[in-house]
Amino acid sequence: MAKIKPRVKVPRSVKAGEFFTVKTLINHKMESGQRKDKKTGKKIPRKIINFFEASFNGTPVFTADIQPAVSSNPFFQFSMKVDGPGKLAFKWVDDDGSVYETAKPIKIG
């Protein structure tokens, strides 16, 4: 499987107290556990991203508890507002225990 690489999109700068949109995408097969291996007929074990969290300066902003019915390459979009600049950190948790992380600075402009 290709390297898992999270992606996020935030505005270059935001206004204090005004909502802005955050988009996130991570490449992941989201193996549902429902599919069968065509050759062996056996079920392919589930392996999904089961949790997503965005937090600003350490405070959770948005989280998602994820089931296998979320599509491959999971995409989440939400809106948030901040009073001042800081770091928006993102975390995806895999069934196998791996954690994928990235962060974006939020600038007030």
Binding site: K3, K5, K23, N27, N73, F75
Partner: peptide, 15 residues
Amino acid sequence: DFDNPGMIFVEQARD
């Protein structure tokens, strides 16, 4: 382009 999941593979090709 951010919403386009095809870009995941384009980025892999860029690597």
